[in-house]
Amino acid sequence: MDSIFKGQVALVTGGTKGIGKAIADTLKDKGAEVIVTARNTPEAGINGYYFIAADLTQPESAEMIAKEIIEKYGRIDIIVNNAGANLGPGGGYAALSDEDWYNDWQLNFMTAVRINKALLPTMINQNSGSIINISTGAAKQPIWDMTMSYSSAKAALNAYSKALASELGPKGIRVNVVSPGLVKTTLMLDFIENIAASSGSNFDDTFKAIMDKVGVPLNRMAEPLEVASLVAFLASPEAKYITGTNYSVDGGASPTV
């Protein structure tokens, strides 16, 4: 499978670190030309990727990104909407302001909607393409005191993805969702540190409390590459009859099949 994406162009939003970087690296290693977006160029630089600096929460960014990709490459084959984060404070409904709700929905839902809308005309003209929206297990198992606004935005992403798959299937375009659970990224580790600090606890005790609350039979966080490997499979021809599906990568945390 080393050159399975040769000749294909892939966009990975939020592709400079964490899960996004693992996805970008995996697609590149398998032959794709990969474009990554982030607000700022990483200090380590970008090697082997085409980088577009963009704040995806700004509505005009999607059209700018799409225009630059099509002008440079003339096509788009894979879109991975990975940009996202749990921005709202913990504490439940009373702790969330209108701005908290707005920010989580802008980053975790509307960014994907806008990117897809801007690039889909090209995919439709090609009569081919694969879109993979990165969601979260918390969309199905929201934690009221940690992920309320984030979970709701990602739940909307799940429903949108299913509807989009139904619309685009006849046009040769597949849409799937990957829902990670706890993944060992800098963002996740910082999230745990912040909860620990706000509760007067330490990292280890806070991590154990989260693991106990979520319930992970494999008893560890996922590595980013374990998510990226599934994304690469779903984008590949080997998954050409798979669309409209949501795959969990959560170590068995989901209580139902």
Rank of each mutant, 00 (worst) to 15 (best):
G31P: 10
Y93W: 03
I115S: 13
I69H: 09
Y93G: 05
D98G: 03
I19Q: 13
V34M: 12
I46T: 13
L87W: 03
I52S: 12
G31V: 07
N82V: 01
K72D: 12
G88R: 07
K67N: 11
A53R: 08
L120F: 05
L120C: 05
Q106C: 03
G74H: 05
N116E: 02
D98F: 08
P121C: 10
A24E: 11
L96F: 04
N103D: 04
I124N: 07
W105T: 01
Y73D: 05
T111D: 10
Y49N: 14
I124K: 14
N40Y: 07
G15S: 06
K17W: 11
I52R: 08
I69L: 07
A83I: 14
K72H: 11
I46W: 15
V36I: 15
R114S: 07
N82D: 13
E71K: 11
V113W: 11
T13I: 07
K17L: 14
W105V: 00
I124A: 04
N127S: 00
E99P: 07
N108A: 12
G92M: 03
I115Q: 05
G31E: 14
A66F: 00
E33L: 13
G15I: 09
A10R: 05
G20R: 02
K21N: 07
A118S: 12
Y50H: 15
A32D: 14
P121S: 06
L87N: 06
I52W: 00
I46F: 02
I79S: 06
T57Q: 12
T16P: 04
L107K: 10
G137C: 08
L119H: 02
G14V: 14
L11Y: 02
R39N: 01
G88N: 12
N86W: 00
T122C: 11
E68N: 12
N125K: 15
A22I: 02
T111I: 13
L107I: 04
E60T: 04
K28Q: 15
F109S: 11
T122R: 14
T136V: 07
Y93L: 10
E43T: 15
L119N: 04
I35D: 11
I23S: 09
K17F: 14
I76H: 06
N47G: 06
W101Y: 05
A38W: 05
L27A: 06
N133L: 08
I35A: 02
L107F: 03
R39I: 09
N127W: 01
I115W: 05
L56N: 10
Y102E: 07
T57I: 15
A38Y: 04
N127H: 08
